[in-house]
Design a protein around this nucleic acid. Structure first.
Length: 458
RNA sequence: GUGAGUGUAGCUCAGUUUGGUUAGAGCAUCGGAUUGUGGUUCCGAGGGUCGUGGGUUCAAGUCCCAUCAUUCACCCCA
């Protein structure tokens, strides 16, 4: 076989040690906050039955699912006529019964239904795993990426929404990022559509309004009319598009427009409650009511969240919302859930772009012992054990290579200290410790060395 | 699904406009100066199907066509 140039699939990435240290810093930070609020970890398989995934993300989503070909003779149940028809959608369900998960929310819903008798509700879970989308990759968009989901299921309380905003605030505060958290409510959007008599056009309306900043009022109105909205409906929308003021002022304006819509008023009152709670606590993220937030309308029923980094343009870095009946499709009715998902890969890109990673995100070996040969190795082994017991990350170079090579290893691996124990040190019972940053070198015994690191580490 | 850009050393790229000897640079790697001292310096070495296939030509990294890969943007989304 010819030698092939190795490569990885489009939109996927290798993570080298330096990158992993930084990624783990993000994951650890997020996890620690999740735990702080009483959430517990679960994991679900990379593959789900295709039937679990299909139809949950809209037509567009179905197209972006990675499907897994059946094992064995996957064509055994396909007739020649079906093959020649080339109905790909139908064929794919015949030859694939599994697919890679597209997000963590739908597998979670499936999990909740399947384990409903073992779960103590309200169930607060977090889940940090990769998901896959057969999208065209581009900046900040990958085919394999990690989501960090945190959801509460089995509780209607708006306290959960408030808590999620706090979690968002805590996470990004710990990561040192300035953010803006945008809130919307599906009920308000429904109310708007109801008032202007265009119930089935909610998505079109919000998508169009969303472009206001980008393309301007005129173009938005043009797009609305292209989507089939009558003139008078567009007319009625104007005060909503031009909504201004602080969050409460926006809600006041909305309640005038939506006074005749029960669902719309419900949404407004929900948002008031949330803002009231939020105003009582300190937050590190700016919270803003934004009616143009249209994400996940396929299943969100109440609050909708989206977080953007203020100092770096990369799309949203966190998003989510409330879904009243996500488990309904799997046969468990009236279980409401609300959650958000942190996009770890985008957060990574933001932190990299802003050079915001702390030095603690580069932790490696603390101390490398130079290897001079078999005699020294035997002498050092018990020392290594004691150092490790004392919590010092220590390694002994495994070959008695040239010192230059061993020093270069320490240098490239950013190991801050090198211990030199050769014949001289062995007879004197000392260790020569070289500081790789300053270059200075000191002689000490083992106890002094341990004390030195314990003091230096903090 | 639509549109644009880019493919030359492990990496970042020059060379393509105007075809012409043996395809270059920086970084990285390896060796030496320096057999108990890395990062700085100096000397040297290895490393190329010029993405792939075809065409034009006396001659193609360079021009033409096709194809593949990859990046960016749109739609949508973390």
């Amino acid at each position: 076989m010819a030698i092939q140039k190795p490569s990885i699939p489009k939109g996927t990435r290798d993570f080298s040690p330096e990158i992993m240290a930084k990624r783990n810093f993000i994951f650890d930070t997020i996890k620690s906050v999740f735990k702080l609020y009483g959430f517990q970890a679960i994991e679900t398989p990379a593959m789900e039955n295709l039937s679990t995934l299909l139809g949950k993300y809209g037509e567009e989503g179905d197209k972006l699912l990675f499907k897994v070909l059946n094992s064995g003779d996957f064509l055994s149940d396909v007739s020649e006529t079906e093959l020649s028809e080339r109905n790909l959608t139908k064929l794919s369900t015949q030859i694939c019964e599994k697919g890679l998960r597209y997000d963590l929310t739908v597998p979670f819903a499936r999990y909740v239904v399947q384990h409903r008798n073992d779960i103590q509700f309200p169930f607060k879970r977090y889940q940090i795993q990769p998901v896959w989308r057969a999208d065209r990759p581009q900046k900040g968009r990958y085919r394999e990426f990690y989501q960090c989901d945190v959801d509460v299921i089995g509780s209607n309380s708006l306290l959960n929404e408030v808590e999620l905003v706090q979690i968002i605030s805590d996470v990004f505060s710990k990561l040192g990022l300035n953010t803006i958290t945008k809130l919307n409510n599906r009920k308000i959007l429904s109310g708007i559509a109801e008032i202007i008599g265009q119930k089935d056009k909610i998505v079109d309306i919000t998508v169009a309004i969303d472009k206001l900043d980008k393309i301007g009022l005129e173009a938005v109105n043009k797009e609305l009319s292209e989507k089939g909205l009558p003139e008078n409906a567009i007319e009625q929308l104007q005060p909503i598009i031009n909504l201004s003021g602080n969050n409460y002022q926006k809600l006041d304006q909305l309640s005038q427009v939506l006074s005749q819509s029960e669902v719309g008023m419900k949404g407004i009152s929900e948002m008031r409650t949330i803002f009231d709670y939020l105003s009582a606590i300190e937050l590190n993220t700016e919270v803003e009511l934004d009616l143009t937030l249209a994400r996940g309308l396929n299943y969100y029923t109440g609050a909708i969240f989206e977080v953007k980094a203020k100092d770096y343009a990369i799309g949203s870095i966190c998003g989510g919302g409330r879904y009243d009946d996500l488990t309904g499709i799997f046969g468990l009715k009236d279980v409401s859930g609300v959650g958000v998902s942190f996009g770890a890969d985008r957060i990574f890109d933001v932190l990299s772009g802003l050079e915001q990673f702390p030095s603690s995100a580069q932790a490696t070996t603390d101390l490398l012992f130079v290897n001079f040969g078999a005699k020294e190795e035997a002498y050092i082994m018990p020392i290594l054990q004691k150092l490790r017991k004392a919590g010092i990350n220590t390694e002994l170079f495994p070959e008695s290579d040239k010192m230059k090579k061993q020093m270069t290893y320490a240098d490239k691996k950013s190991i801050p200290f090198v211990a030199i124990v050769g014949e001289n040190e062995m007879t004197q019972g000392t260790i020569s410790l070289k500081n790789m940053i300053s270059g200075e070198q000191n002689t000490m015994n083992l106890e002094e060395l341990i004390v030195f690191f314990k003091e230096n580490k903090k």
